[in-house]
Structure formats: C-alpha cells, structure tokens
C-alpha cells in the first residue's frame, strides 16, 4: 500500500547534513533520510533546526577567526 506523509524536504550540503544527523540523535525529527544532500523532516522542527544550525555554523566561524 502506498503511503504519503506530510513534511518538509530539506536540501543542504553534505556538511550541514552531517550536523542534521547529529541533532536528530537528540530530537528524532527525521522522517526519512533521503540522500547525501536531502532529508525529509517533521514540519514543526524546521524553525528550530535552522536556529540550531546557524548557531553551530557561527561557532565554527568564530573559531576560525580566533585562530588567526
């Protein structure tokens, strides 16, 4: 039987995809892991996911600046 699930397909690069997989271990919001650059997630988690990823990416940017 064909199944249809509502959600959000997120396209991102593979490094961000790794971050998403890491975050999912705490939250479990991934409905289906599609491929290296796509993941299908619960719609209600997208805003929080964006915040979490921005925070992680910004942290990394600071580290680069400090090491100069």
């Amino acid at each position: 039987m064909v199944k249809a699930v509502k959600g959000v397909v997120v396209e991102c690069d593979s490094s961000v995809k790794m971050i998403i997989l890491g975050l999912n271990e705490k939250g479990q919001f991934i409905i289906e892991d599609l491929d290296e650059t796509h993941v299908f997630v619960d719609a209600s988690c997208v805003d929080q996911l964006r915040l979490d990823i921005d925070e992680i990416l910004n942290e990394n940017t600071y580290k680069v600046e400090e090491s100069k």
Partner: peptide
C-alpha cells in the same frame, strides 16, 4: 565571502509530501 559561505550552507526547506511503499 564568509557571509556567502554561511548562506550557502543554510537549509533550503520545501513543504511537501513523501510517497513511499510502492509495492
């Protein structure tokens, strides 16, 4: 360049439906 790099990394979400289990 740094802004562009961060921007490039961001998510591109699209509301959708996933069809699965085609027998």
């Amino acid at each position: 360049i740094r802004l562009w790099e961060i921007e490039k990394n961001r998510l591109r979400p699209t509301a959708s439906w996933l069809y699965s289990q085609f027998s």
